[in-house]
Design a protein around this nucleic acid. Structure first.
Length: 196
DNA sequence: TCTAGGATCGGCT
DNA sequence: GCCGATCCTAGAT
């Protein structure tokens, strides 16, 4: 399991290092694990795309201002839950949005949550889909991913994603952020072996 | 109190 | 490629 020190680092580095890691969710129904393929960095008060831009402190974003290694969950468009991991800590207001990955364990359970006709690779290849496949809800906002009993944690199984397999680009859906929408803070792992 | 709009998805054309 | 779903949040009044 990745410890708190993994998250207590610069957000861009955490984002890059999250590629290829396993996100594990255990509930009474069973366990689902996702190999992360796509993430985005949100750089806090100075990042117009971030929920904490300008030092905004509202109940919704309280978790994002907290300790590194906690899950920040929010609802978009009234129906999709997005899962973020708080980085840096100490009130930095920064986080990494987990945008997608491949379900490598618990496909049957993930498919039950997502729908019977969903293809393997589409089970968690988007922020909302990832949330649904892992049964993430607003109740999960603020849980500690460095504490296995919380039922949500990340681990490193040794798979290495070299720099040549990482693509960077602008973040998705943040057109309201002006110039910051172009910042290359989206990280994608390419050519990862599927299904492992 | 009211209102606008959103870090998306999937179905339809 | 377009559009509707759906409801909470934040800011304005």
């Amino acid at each position: 399991m990745l410890g708190r020190e993994f998250y207590q680092r610069p957000t861009v580095r955490v984002a890059r290092d999250l590629l290829g890691k396993l996100l594990v969710r255990r509930t009474r129904e069973g366990t689902v694990a996702v190999r992360l393929h796509e993430v985005e960095a949100y750089l806090g008060p100075t990042d117009p795309a971030a929920h904490t831009f300008g030092g905004r402190r509202t109940p919704r974003v309280a978790t994002m201002w907290g300790e590194a290694g906690h899950a920040y969950v929010f609802l978009v468009y009234g129906l999709h839950h997005c899962l973020n991991l708080v980085t840096v800590g100490g009130g930095a207001g920064q986080a990494v949005l987990l945008r997608g990955g491949a379900v490598v364990l618990g496909r049957d359970l993930a498919r039950r949550r997502r729908g019977p006709a969903i293809a393997d690779r589409a089970l968690a290849d988007g922020p909302g889909k990832l949330g649904q496949a892992l049964a993430i809800s607003l109740d999960d906002d603020g849980i500690d991913v460095c504490d296995r009993p919380s039922g949500l944690w990340l681990c490193d199984d040794g798979l290495r994603v070299g720099p040549r397999r990482i693509r960077r680009g602008p973040r998705v859906g943040v057109h309201y952020a002006g110039e910051a929408a172009e910042w290359p803070l989206r990280f994608l792992a390419t050519a990862l072996p599927w299904g492992c």
